[in-house]
Simulated scan of single mutants.
Amino acid sequence: MSSSRLHRPLVAVSAAMAGMAVVSVLGLVLDDRLLAGEPMWAKPFKFAVSFVAYCLSLAWMLSLLPRQSRAGRRAASWAGTVVAVACAAEMALIAGQAVRGRRSHFNYATPLDSAVFTAMGVMAMVIWCGTLAVAVLLFRARMADRATVWTIRLSTVLALVGAGFGVLMTRPAPGQRRGVSDVVGAHSVGVPDGGPGLPLLGWSTTGGDLRIPHFVGMHALQVLPLLLLALLVLARRRPRLADPATRLRLMLVASGAYAAVVALLGWQALRGRPLVHPDAATLAAAAAIAALTAAGIVAALRTRAPAADPLTRHHEPEPVR
């Protein structure tokens, strides 16, 4: 795949976000102000790094779309550009609030703060819709390798699900009232925002935290394709993995396991349980996911589907859906 096929606006925004991450690191070092219990520049840093990975992943996925029609190419280009512009705009709003020493999220303290957060919500929805458009294009695309096409399709769907957890954060927390409270919405469940949290990430260690399934879900865009890449590298030494049908089955198992983990993290957060202190129900669900995943991997490696099985044909020269 030539670098010239990478979506240029997404690549450009990724480069700008990398620069913003460096600026945020300097802010973390030089600016000792705290906001809601976190360093002032922690949020810009986390968003910058996340946007680098997100935009590069989408740029790569768009480069895999076959150039079948002018309309399809135009739709892919527009979807990528919309996501790139919205990411840049949201990052500018977050950084601007950090410069002002103000909360960027859930802040209704002043008309300006309220307008900024509302604009951020609009940008987040634009990113979600743009990513949905990319997902639709990926599901309609014809590609030769089934493991690759299903990996990028399912990772995009999981990213959309993860992003959806952001909507839950905007609900008023106990004691908050729209039109009255300066802050409406929260990351944490069962405890106030700003309490004890994991270093840098800030995820609550005393209650549930919706940022966890949000983060894990969105970064399926990187984790699952990297897992597929690892299988391709291992295939050089493990002949069984050289079989495209085997890789497809393994990636379907991995995608299912990843979806189950996102669901588990969301369930844990909504019940107000901290990630680092899981209860018996959480541990039991995690054990079940691990056991089912292990069984799925064994079955994927042992199963030899008939050549006529449409999920495992790989000797046909025609592209497949």
Rank of each mutant, 00 (worst) to 15 (best):
L200K: 06
R33E: 13
T81P: 01
R177W: 05
L234M: 15
A124W: 04
V261E: 04
V11L: 10
A92L: 11
P274I: 12
A42T: 13
L200T: 07
D182C: 12
T246M: 02
G166C: 03
M123S: 10
A71D: 12
L210S: 01
A141D: 05
G101Y: 05
V134P: 00
R237H: 11
A109M: 07
R146G: 02
V85D: 06
T293R: 00
L221S: 06
M120N: 02
L28M: 13
R238T: 11
W60Y: 13
M169G: 07
L252P: 12
A141V: 04
F165K: 06
Y258C: 04
S204P: 02
E318I: 06
E316F: 08
A89D: 14
V262M: 08
V134C: 14
L270E: 10
L275A: 03
M218T: 14
G202T: 09
L160G: 12
W60S: 07
L198C: 06
D31R: 08
A36P: 02
L231N: 02
W60R: 15
P278H: 15
M251F: 11
L112N: 09
E318P: 03
D113F: 04
V122Q: 08
F47A: 07
A16C: 11
V298W: 11
A291W: 02
G175N: 05
G185W: 02
G179W: 09
R140P: 10
M123I: 02
A147E: 01
G207T: 01
A147K: 06
A263C: 07
R102A: 14
Q176C: 05
R102E: 15
C129N: 01
S3V: 11
A294R: 03
P172Y: 10
M91Y: 08
A242K: 01
A257Q: 12
V223S: 09
R238K: 07
T118W: 07
L270T: 13
V136P: 00
A299P: 03
L241T: 07
S57R: 04
C129L: 14
A133Q: 09
T148G: 05
Q68D: 14
V22D: 03
M251P: 10
Y258E: 05
F117I: 02
L221I: 02
M61Y: 08
A285Y: 01
Y54V: 03
D209K: 03
G27C: 10
E316S: 09
R70L: 15
V189W: 00
P44Y: 02
A163R: 13
L221D: 01
A280C: 06
I127V: 14
L56S: 06
V298S: 00
R142D: 12
D243C: 09
A92C: 09
R8D: 03
G130D: 07
V262K: 08
W150G: 02
V126N: 00
L160S: 11
R67D: 15
